[in-house]
Design a binder for these strands. Sequence first.
RNA 1: GGCGGCAUGGCCAAGUGGUAAGGCAGAGGAUUGCAAAUCCUUUACCCCCAGUUCGAAUCUGGGUGCCGCCUCCA
Length: 494
Amino acid sequence: MSLRLTNSLSRRLEVFQPLAPGQVSIYCCGVTVYDLCHLGHARSYINWDVLRRHLIWSGYRVRFVQNYTDIDDKILRRAAEEGSSMAAVSERNIEAFVADMARLNILPADRMPRATGSLAAICALIGELEAKGAAYSADGDVYFAVMRHAGYGKLSGRDLGEQQQNAAGRVASEEEARKQHPFDFALWKGAKPGEPSFDSPWGPGRPGWHIECSAMVRAELGDTIDIHLGGADLIFPHHENEIAQSEAATGQELARFWLHNGMVNVGGEKMSKSLGNFTTIRALLDSGVSAMTLRLFVLQAHYRKPLDFTTEALEAAATGWKGLNAALTLAAGSDGERAAITPAQPASDPAALAPELAAARERFATAMDDDLNTSAALAVLFELARPLRALANRLERGDAAGGDPALGPALHQRGELLLELAAVLGLRPEAVSTPAAFAAGGPDQAAIEALIEQRRAAKACRDFASADRIRADLLQQGIELIDRPGGHTEWLRR
RNA sequence: GGCGGCAUGGCCAAGUGGUAAGGCAGAGGAUUGCAAAUCCUUUACCCCCAGUUCGAAUCUGGGUGCCGCCUCCA
């Protein structure tokens, strides 16, 4: 079965066929680096990372480009607020972005161009549009003329003739006055006094938002790419405008497939900076939610549907991940390379797999090929994991034959397959947080361990009342005790 | 107002014509000094109405409810 994806252009499921056999070019709209990334970004980039991994796993060579928007009003405002510069704000947030993505096990893009590094290409493109009559300049600004571009609105289903021209009062009226049509958008904005600016044939200023993507796609990947990615909130106007600019300039179709991910909601509303209902990726991860838990949470839903962020759902994902992680950890063994498994050609030879495992692999591939049905794919992972979890627990209790996790050929093969398929979803064994990692607050480690020793002594004398009191007291202070086989007691902060 | 999407058990969520995956929670069991953890087993007729069909959660028409975009936004 071949990969089918929902193409926003047709709003239909289409069989994916790259332009050049065996290789796929992808452009993903990146972030405006004025602040830290939140869970909406996490969802988007986790999903696209999975698309990329699935393509690689399926045997394609993938070239993946993602931009940084580092010229923007919000960055300027932020810089002004903190008395620093646009470059400083951008640099800081780019570093944070890279770190956050790495924590989520999102593969770095092959190229990550910045708007500030693409000015020559941007100006060239604007010049081309102006020369072709698709754009006009007005008072130092340059605008794209939507009425002169046949097909404007094809992505978002907007009809210029029928559109309510309700932009009045929402957009700076002076800018509105310069436009020939309300939907015309700025390719170049002339600098206002005191603003940082870049030189251009139209005078000092800075590029509009949409043009950078058109310029970067062309510079990095060519006139027509296979897949263009972004959040559903970018369909209009951003992607619509991108299409108009690029296609007016090149005469070629910009992207053959457009994929859009659904929003992360909080209490039924979209998570966004303006609503103030966002949680940053690092705040969540630093609060003790593991990166793989977040990944599982995201992948349990289909990428196109809205995903409601609730603590209940997140806790469910955490518990689910715990089980999966136990199986993955056992399968990976002590081999460090295993933990760092990267997607590649199929690691297992399907022909050599036991029938049950071959069927599981097939179900996984079919699910992923069906518009990235990660929810169904995860079900396969959970089923593969079950016997491994059971063994992991038996080993922990010490009642499995032999101390060595010699899995036996069948379980070994199952473990290998589980690791292979999990890697397609970017899921990898994750070290369980150690008490040391939660060293802040409450009783210190030495005190806790002293109490554990007291309790052990009490239990040895069958003084369970004292033992239970110690356990209850510690729980009051947020310390949970877990008795393990062999009289050993572990603890963790709740 | 225009465009688009969604509605499946207590919660999350697959399934697009043949009698409902998976996860969480719950229940029962095993285990445990008791707990926790772990393992096993177990729980639905799919928003409403009317159609099409031998047969629909799945197709058609009409409702109802919710969300996104139309302004920066993943």
